[in-house]
Each structure stands twice: as structure tokens, then as C-alpha cells.
Amino acid sequence: MNEMPKFEQATEMTESKISAKKVQVYYGDTHAIKDVDIEIQPRSVTAFIGPSGCGKSTFLRTLNRMNDTIDICRVQGSIKIDGEDIYDPKVDPVQLRAKVGMVFQKPNPFPKSIYDNVAYGPRIHGLARNKAQLDDIVSSSLQKAGLWDEVKDRLSEPGTGMSGGQQQRLCIARAIAVSPEVILMDEPCSALDPIATAKIEELIDELRANYTIVIVTHSMQQAARVSQRTAFFHLGVLVEEGSTDNIFTNPEDKRTQDYITGRFG
């Protein structure tokens, strides 16, 4: 379970990338997230685990203000990225999301060609000055997502025509293409078969070198395989957060122990 290399020492020394303090999220009258404090280390993978409806996805979505699109959702407390409060009125969510990309549960390529899917982000953010630069961004993003060899001959085919695993890697390539610093992944493998899942996990491990990755997962094995740090959410509360090794071998909280030993959830 613990074959993956771990770098707690290295990462814990650096300043945290994301720092959340006393975060509350309300859906209308429902208090969905209560008092969450967490520090997320740069260039590492942090996994959020917990039973369904525990608020882990909701919290993930507050990190790039995706909850703004939901009318009844309110966020309180402070979330800082590189020391800047992302809920500050001066912050434009559009710029924030260019810095904090997101990959979703179900692969959701746009009904466009593979090329256009990847080029979409750079185009809207004006990252390429000409076609050649755009081509570069597209090919390097696809390479980083490990998809280049599979699709380089059919870039003009629709992205929706690929297999589920390829689609999800296309979505990762699409997120990488706007060169974010943080990538949020909301159960990226839940719709995929084991082989495609293994590929994505491998990819996540490679991406760790350049990006801060936060992943929500249902599977404790996956959390153990890909992450350096793990946070356990239960009923909207962050129960425990620490190095993945510690959480899985030596949890401090009774609830965490019950969950990872399969007593509920």
C-alpha cells in the first residue's frame, strides 16, 4: 500500500500553497462545511477522503470559487493562495481559475475537436500570440497528459469520440494548457475502469513535480497510492489531516479509524 515514494520532509519545510482558515459553506440554510482549517503544501498531492456527502467535493470547489455558479451557496472564512485571499472582492474568479484549474468526476470534453478542446483555455486567456505558439501549448499539454502519442494523428477528431480514460486525460491536458499552479481533481477516476485509472494515477504522480494537486477520492487505496498528505472529512467537518502514512497506519481520531477500516462509509 505504501510503495509510492513519500516526501513529507521535503514538502513540510516549504511554505504552504493554500491556507484555509475557519471556512464555512452554506447551501441556503444547510451548513455544509463547518470550521475547516487546512494547509496544502505546494508540489505535492493532497487527498480528501470521506464518506459520500461529507463535504469534501464542496470544499474542493471553494478553492477555485466554482461554488460561485450556485446561487444559494455562501462561503465564509478565509482561503489564501500564496498569501492572497481568493474571496477578496478585488479578485476576479476568472483569473483565479486560470491559476487553479479543475478536473471533474465525469470526463467532460467539449463537443469540439481534440485540438480545440486543449486550445480552448489558452485562447480565452490569450496565452498564445500566434498559431505556432498555440500549437506548442497544445502539443506540450497533451504530452504532459501522456496523450500525445495516442492522438497526434487525429487532433481534428471530436474529443467526445475517445475512450473514457482518454477523455479524462484530455480534460487534464485541457487544464494543464492554461498553465495553472494548482489542479483540483474531483474523483477523476470514478467513471473509469482499473487500467485507465492506473494511467491517470501514474499521470498524477508525474504532474506532482510541477503542480500542487488536490484530489478528492472515494477510494482509500487510491488516496494511499497517489497522495502525500490526506485529509479526512466527515459530516462537513475536517476530522483529521496529516501525512498519508500516518492517516492510514496510525489515525488519531476514532472516526478516521472506523472509516479506513471499513466500519462505515
Binding site: T69, V94, R97, G101, N108, G121, I124, C171, A175, V178
Partner: peptide, 13 residues
């Protein structure tokens, strides 16, 4: 909705 999320997640207006 996944289409919208995908686009907003990339920072599109």
C-alpha cells in the same frame, strides 16, 4: 451542466 463546469473550471467567463 458538466460542459459549463468544464468551461468555468478553465476560467472562462
Amino acid at each position: 451542466q458538466a460542459m459549463r463546469d468544464g468551461s468555468y473550471g478553465l476560467g472562462a467567463t
